[in-house]
Simulated scan of single mutants.
Amino acid sequence: MRLSLSLPLIALCAFAASAQAFAGNQIPDEVKEKCKADYSRLCSGVMPGGGRILACFQAHKDEVSPDCRDALSRVKN
């Protein structure tokens, strides 16, 4: 019984985390704006925090849009 109640809660938390993926302060506003579609397409399964989203963009650097790539190039690591 406990497991059957936990699964929907875990799914809800994962959805909320992905919806707020750019809510963290470590990602500049310009990147949030210009990389939103790229995030949805390439990195939506990545848990926010610890630089994981920026690492995902780096792993997919040849696939991100030119605007996103430009914004990311200005992020200081």
Rank of each mutant, 00 (worst) to 15 (best):
M1F: 11
L3T: 14
L3C: 08
S4H: 02
L5F: 15
L5S: 11
P8H: 09
P8M: 05
L9C: 13
I10K: 00
I10P: 01
I10C: 07
A11S: 03
L12P: 00
L12K: 00
C13T: 12
C13V: 14
A14L: 14
F15A: 10
A16R: 07
A16Q: 08
A17D: 05
A17G: 05
S18Q: 14
S18T: 12
A19K: 10
Q20T: 14
Q20M: 04
A21N: 03
F22A: 03
A23N: 11
G24I: 03
N25S: 14
Q26W: 02
I27G: 07
I27W: 11
I27E: 12
I27M: 11
P28L: 01
D29K: 06
D29F: 07
K32L: 10
E33F: 07
K34L: 15
C35K: 07
C35E: 05
K36C: 03
A37G: 04
D38F: 02
R41E: 09
R41N: 14
L42V: 01
C43T: 04
G45S: 10
V46Y: 01
V46T: 12
M47A: 14
P48H: 00
G49I: 11
G49V: 09
G49D: 11
I53F: 05
C56D: 03
C56A: 11
A59E: 13
H60G: 02
K61P: 00
K61L: 11
D62K: 13
E63Q: 13
P66A: 10
D67W: 08
D67F: 01
D67N: 12
C68H: 07
C68K: 10
R69A: 15
D70R: 13
D70Q: 12
S73G: 15
R74K: 14
V75R: 05
V75I: 12
K76P: 00
K76G: 10
N77D: 09
N77P: 07
